[in-house]
Design a protein around this nucleic acid. Structure first.
Lengths: 190, 190
DNA sequence: TTCTGTCTGTCTATCGATAGATAGATTGTA
DNA sequence: TACAATCTATCTATCGATAGACAGACAGAA
């Protein structure tokens, strides 16, 4: 069972993703990363020439996986409320998994220090989420304008990212749950 | 007009605060900081023995200043809506000021790397904000239970932090404005 | 007043650790 | 043999932190 090049790339990305979600992009170190996957840091550079390449690959993959999951959800799920249940659960599970954050949420906080190629990918993640949310909302409010849908979707996305950030800061997932409940009580989240 | 010790401490804290609000705690460097205020890094250590001391002092000061402003606001302002206008304006002004973030919001993202003394101060900031918001909300809903007020206050705080995070990520203060407007349309923010 | 010792704030110089990155040798497989 | 993947070894830059020197301010004693 020899490790192929692809296997190694995957292992590096998996470890890197966990680190970034816990400690941010700046805390990502080639040496630590290499130690975790059992190779040397020079070998990590073989797979990802620069740290920016790795960061951009992480964010791109993160967006792709999220988009795939959400597309599946939209295709199979019944109603809007159920979609939103599943959506908020995604962000909840990051917290439940060792108090981690959304990869792109935590990278947003480090925005000014990110290489441009990483920043580009982070932007796409937000756009993908808002686009999906707008599509879901359009089911509940078919008469709403595109602009209204976009703004509502953006508000939901921002509110959920904020709930995750604050709950993580308090190291209390209960805060996330109660905050989401409050969002739903007001109708912000259907 | 010789610089007193207090003057120097203030100058260091002012520069440090700007750096943290733009780039986070990890990006705060004693050397860069010293260069900005025109001394050497060893002299910064004279005023703040460790980086943790500086970070904790920053967060404490930030909370104190915020609390003072909010207390004044609560004492003088007329209605709940006006208080919330002023409150959301605080977070807006950080964005308007070179796309900066709430000091404690950006530090929350770096939570796991913060010295404990810094973390403690960051926690207090969130508690102070939620406490104030609950007090404001109690004016509009005098019959609500303390727990309801706390949860609603937490939801507002989280939503606003999230709006700031996302708008900053997009480098578009208009997103903040539209998101706040959406929060108010749903009644999340009075 | 003048001398003397102490304190304050800043300096230079340096430490050990760690960062990302690279060149070139080496191993294993086809 | 040729290529893919990893290695060793090293570079430069930066980090927080510390030791020790030094200049100026100031207080009390002569």
């Amino acid at each position: 069972m020899a490790k192929t090049k692809t296997d190694m790339r995957e292992a590096v990305m998996t470890a890197a993703r966990a680190t970034v979600q816990s400690h941010g992009y700046n805390a990502l170190s080639f040496r630590e990363l290499a130690k975790e996957v059992g190779i040397k840091s020079a070998s990590v550079h073989y797979h990802f020439p620069t740290k920016g390449d790795l960061g951009a690959a992480l964010a791109r993959r993160y967006t792709e996986e999220g988009a795939a999951y959400l597309a599946e959800l939209l295709a199979t799920s019944e109603d809007v409320t159920c979609c939103m249940d599943k959506y908020t659960e995604i962000f909840r599970s990051a917290l439940a998994n060792d108090n981690r954050m959304c990869l792109c949420g935590i990278m947003s906080a480090e925005l000014d220090d990110l290489p441009t190629e990483v920043r580009t990918e982070v932007d796409k993640f937000a756009a993908m989420n808002v686009g999906w949310l707008a599509k879901v909302l359009s089911r509940a409010k078919p008469s709403a304008t595109d602009q209204d849908l976009q703004e509502h979707a953006m508000a939901i996305f921002a509110a959920i990212e904020g709930a995750q950030l604050v709950a993580r800061g308090c190291r209390d997932i209960g805060i996330y749950d109660r905050t989401i409940r409050a969002y739903r009580a007001t109708g912000l989240v259907p």
